[in-house]
Design a protein around this nucleic acid. Structure first.
Length: 136
DNA sequence: CCTATGACGCAAT
DNA sequence: AATTGCGCCATAG
C-alpha cells in the first residue's frame, strides 16, 4: 500500500480513472496518465495496477480487482504487457470474458485491436465540464 | 541511505 | 525494424 498521502492520492486517481473504461473496451497506461494530467508517468499507472489488491484478499477494500477493471488497461502497442506469463494469460482470460478478442503478435504477445476496442477520450467523461478555471 | 527494477512510452539512434 | 536512453517514482533489497 502507498506510504505517503501523495502516493495514496495518485493511486486513488488512477483507480478511479480506470473505472471509467467502459465494459468491453480497452485503453493504455499512457492514456490513463494523460487523463490525469501526468503524461510522463504511464509507468506509475502500471505500479498502481501492480499493487491493486485482489478481491479475495481484500473483499471490502474500496479498490480491488473486483471494483477496478484492471484488465482493460494494456500498453500503447496494443498488447497485454508481458510482465509474467501467468499474469498476461490471466488478463487475456478476464478480458476475453467481456467480449474482447485477443490476438497474437509475432512474438506471442497477446494483442487487442484499438480500432475495434480502444477507448481514448481526451478527458474523463465525469470531469469533462468540471474545469472552468481555465482562464486563458 | 543508496541502488536496482519495473503491468510504460516516446524520441533518437 | 530493433535498441537504447531517459523521465517517473513506488518498492524491494
Amino acid at each position: 500500500m502507498p506510504q505517503t498521502e501523495e502516493a495514496a492520492a495518485w493511486f486513488a486517481a488512477v483507480y478511479q480513472a480506470v473505472q471509467e473504461i467502459p465494459h468491453g473496451r480497452v485503453t493504455s497506461y499512457g492514456h490513463i496518465a494523460l487523463l490525469l494530467g501526468f503524461p510522463e508517468r504511464p509507468r506509475q499507472v502500471g505500479v498502481c495496477l501492480k499493487h491493486l489488491p485482489s478481491a479475495a484478499d481484500q473483499p471490502s477494500a474500496r479498490y480491488n480487482s473486483d471494483t477496478v477493471p484492471w484488465q482493460r488497461v494494456i500498453n500503447a502497442k496494443g498488447a497485454i504487457s508481458p510482465r509474467g506469463a501467468n499474469g498476461a494469460a490471466n488478463q487475456e482470460t478476464v478480458l476475453g470474458q467481456e467480449g474482447v478478442a485477443i490476438g497474437r503478435g509475432s512474438l506471442g504477445e497477446r494483442t487487442v485491436d484499438f480500432e475495434t476496442y480502444g477507448w481514448f477520450p481526451s478527458r474523463l467523461p465525469s470531469r469533462e465540464g468540471e474545469d472552468e478555471s481555465d482562464s486563458e
